[in-house]
Design a protein around this nucleic acid. Structure first.
Lengths: 109, 109
DNA sequence: CTACTTGTAACCTGATACGTAACATGTTAT
DNA sequence: ATAACATGTTACGTATCAGGTTACAAGTAG
């Protein structure tokens, strides 16, 4: 469930504030060890790009976390943003037909 | 945690077998209600494309599920596939420095 | 036969991840 | 102050992916 009121924090901010900074790790060294370009890390840290599955694996190895930690943060972030722009109002809820052989019925159709 | 041995099932297969088929819903009607092209749904059902955040919201509305259900399936699928191709062997584990003012140290550096 | 359903190919648009190279700016060390 | 380093960012290029339209082939049901 997403708290629709609060905009979720970008995973890059967590990476910066809770992983790089406590370790006094600079971006140049961190990027080198992660096997990515310094620019890629900078973009991620500043919320200009998301955490891909590959990136989640790299982060999980370097920081001894689960890859799901990073992807779930990204998922919540993406979900909130998608919810801001997608209009679901015309989508009807599919309902189970009473008769097993009949076709499905839309909630208001 | 991902079971690294078993290839996870694509969310499109779940959508097809556990949602569309039990409702006797055809792709044409389902796509129309979801507000997407019939082709887009077909590609998803056959595993030729993934579940985006937008798509997860559409599916959650139409099938009365959480969007996380769909995105987590997609995440596990993506993670497994990324794990097949990314080599993490040269990534060292960042370790906390003993001295708070010193810089971080790589596990084998 | 005809209509419906499904898979898919061709083609196009837009977004995103990631890379290299380069530059401006700010900070730190000498 | 000069030099070295750190960071943010721009420009440019490549690859991948979501999604759309149109159209066609093949299977199934009337």
């Amino acid at each position: 469930m997403i708290k629709q009121g609060m905009k979720p924090i970008h995973p890059g901010q967590i990476l910066k504030e809770m992983y790089l900074e406590p370790l006094s790790l600079n971006q140049t060294d961190a990027a080198a060890n992660l096997g990515i370009a310094r620019k890629t890390l900078s973009m991620l840290l500043n919320g200009h790009q998301g955490v891909s599955a590959e990136m989640a694996l790299r982060l999980s190895k370097a920081f001894n976390t689960s890859p799901e930690l990073w992807l779930n943060m990204q998922r919540n972030y993406d979900l909130w943003n998608a919810g801001q722009r997608v209009k679901l109002s015309q989508i009807k809820v599919f309902r189970k037909p009473r008769n097993a052989s009949s076709r499905a019925i839309l909630s208001h159709a």
